[in-house]
């Protein structure tokens, strides 16, 4: 096996691994014990998020991204 082949193999093997990994992404319904926890929800504390969004919207030039970054107050 020459060097070019080795490099090709080095590139292809991870790709196949990733591709096959993609097909097995996700869990069965009975495997959601950890995902169902409060701490694993994407917005684990909506109140904290609302307060933080308001602070950073008022003090910085960016907003939103996770949710809507729209208007709502005259603080900026």
């Amino acid at each position: 096996m020459n060097t070019v082949h080795k490099i090709k193999l080095a590139l292809i093997v991870p790709l196949i691994t990733i591709a096959s990994g993609c097909t097995s992404l996700g869990v069965e319904p009975w495997e959601r014990d950890l995902l169902a926890k409060d701490a694993m929800s994407l917005t684990s504390s909506p109140i904290d998020s609302a307060l933080d969004d308001h602070i950073y919207f008022s003090k910085e030039a960016s907003s939103g991204g996770k949710g809507f970054g729209g208007g709502g107050c005259g603080c900026n």
């Binding site: 994407l42 998020s49 609302a50």
Partner: peptide, 19 residues
């Protein structure tokens, strides 16, 4: 857990989140 999850959805939706 169910109540909490629901609360997360509703409030995140309020915030405009797509959770």
């Amino acid at each position: 857990t169910n109540i909490k999850a629901a609360l997360t959805i509703a409030t995140a939706a309020l915030l405009g989140g797509n959770t």
